[in-house]
Design a protein around this nucleic acid. Structure first.
Lengths: 159, 159
DNA sequence: GACAAGTCCGTTATGTTATAACATATGCGC
DNA sequence: GCGCATATGTTATAACATAACGGACTTGTC
């Protein structure tokens, strides 16, 4: 499957695939992939869009899996810390990671029309940043890039 | 003066300089550089750090320049829209721009120890992102990069 | 100068995002 | 079964941000 979120793809397959990867990752690292955590990842994968914590919480509440903010935030923290999801700071929202397991500096393209968020490999961004940083002795621990714009689909078919 | 915020520099001079640039920019573009807006920029320049809107508001309140959130947010909106300041999404905080007037995709290095934020020229980041984007037809309108780590000074002198 | 239009400011109220703190429960090694 | 670490449920609140409205001030036009 392509890494680019704006393309058509076998959605059902990509969800199953990602869930399986997540299972494997958790098994390997002795992480507890609890029902809530699992369900939150499924929800994110299913939407294939950035979702606010309270949007996720709403879904969980309907399903009787908890209704207080910490429920959502704890699951999201787990997913983000373990590279299964990312936070889009610009939107205060969360997306499932589309490059599980790869060591990547996440780069995101956010379509302001359809709200879809595509994760792009941004390894080269990291190297450039690292270069700028090393000149001043700055040690980069985490980096992120977020771009806002309009995806090809929305350019062709304006709302 | 260097663009890199972690180096020693003539702080007083850099404030005066930036304020003068801001004056000029506003004059040129018929923007109203009102007392509140001016003061907020001064505060940001003076701290030379990322500040939350409510931190700024507190300073304004002490000085009798308004005590309600919109006062701070309106001034910040003005500064950000006109390129005189940037919002650090990661921190929900604001910094004065250190490259006034240049057409730049802002890149930030955030020291998690001392909270200093350095703005780095990131023109090349934009071009790389543009390349990745053009492959999928995505049109980039705005982009930002934020890196967290530890600055040279804090590496040498841990707290 | 009088007026209209636009912009900015003061204020109240509220919306949205996120976390602290503490009690309870669950799983796991021994 | 006991003790420890981790996860969950819950209450409360902190932190960040904006809507909406009225009044003041500026600016351009006649």
């Amino acid at each position: 499957m392509s890494a680019i979120g704006f393309e058509e793809h076998d959605h059902h397959h990509c969800i199953a695939d990602a869930m399986q990867n997540a299972e494997a990752l958790c098994a390997t690292n002795s992480l507890k992939f609890t029902p809530t955590r699992r369900r939150v990842l499924e929800i994110l994968l299913d939407r294939h869009q950035a979702m606010g914590a309270y949007d996720i919480l709403e879904v969980l509440a309907v399903e009787g899996m908890g209704s207080q903010p910490p429920v959502a935030y704890r699951a999201l923290d787990f997913l983000v810390s373990n590279g299964l999801a990312h936070k889009i700071e610009r939107l205060n929202a969360y997306v499932a990671c589309s490059h599980q397991g790869e060591d990547h500096t996440p780069g995101f393209m956010i379509c302001t029309e359809c709200k879809t968020v595509a994760e792009v490999p941004a390894a080269s961004v990291r190297s450039i940043l690292g270069e700028a940083a090393s000149q001043t002795g700055f040690r980069v621990d985490r980096a992120m890039i977020e771009a806002e714009g309009v995806c090809a689909n929305c350019q062709e078919h304006p709302a």
